[in-house]
Nucleic acid binder design. Sequence first.
DNA 1: TCTCGTGTTTCTTG
DNA 2: TCAAGAAACACGAG
Length: 263
Amino acid sequence: MPELAEVEFFRRQWDPGIGKKILRVELHPGARIFRGTNPPALQKLLEGATLIESMAHGKQMAFRFSSAWLGLHLGMTGELRAQSGHPSGDRHDHLILRWKSGSLFFRDPRLFGRIRFHPSTTIPEWWADRPPNLLSPSFTITKLTEYLKRRKNAPLKATLLQQEQFPGIGNWMADEILWRCQLPPHLPLSATDTATIAKLRRIIREVCRDALRVVGASWSDPPAHWLFPHRWKNGGTCPRCRQPLKRKKIGGRTTCWCPACQK
DNA sequence: TCTCGTGTTTCTTG
DNA sequence: TCAAGAAACACGAG
């Protein structure tokens, strides 16, 4: 589920833990989400540490503690929650941080998520090396044009899912962007068409802002005039022209678009 | 019982 | 060397 806005929503779920001293860390050390990390070291350093702040960037999150950094990626099914008291976790709660009167949970049934750990207070490489935020001025038409030129043969849908260039865009956001731009998902974009690239950049930013406002702030249902509520199953109709929507796998992901509008 | 999926990494092919 | 596509990961929902 988690894309840009959902990640921002889940990041804030751990806010009750900010300023709290972690007394106990419970984890499933063999779980796939710990691949590449050292769970015993994580447990040792976080016990006694205070959670200072949290940040989200694209689909990545970072939690800065007084002794170390914790990086979280939610994969397909990850979610974060906080609860008062110390309720026990279920078999999919792979990381639990307990303070005096509450607990923070990271749950992930499919284990596609990932936990990173940096045993120092300096900024970790995996957080310093982030691509420009799509809403920042560094996401320029020039950089976008260069990137599209490099991937000139890939379907536009597959290109929009590349996190190295479009941090936070996932399957539904990519479909929404292409639908609002009225561009077909299966065709590559000619890098010479500057007007179209400028429009694509504008709509990418618009969808990011809309998603953060509607989903990121309160997990509200996106309105009926977006493609979003219509794209989930066969038989949907385009909220713009009322023609039937089409669904097909493009770039390995289920893609929904309006053949009448997007050509 | 079978298929599918709001993601990423690794392998294979061209 | 690089880009593009497929497979693999693991589980719950329909």
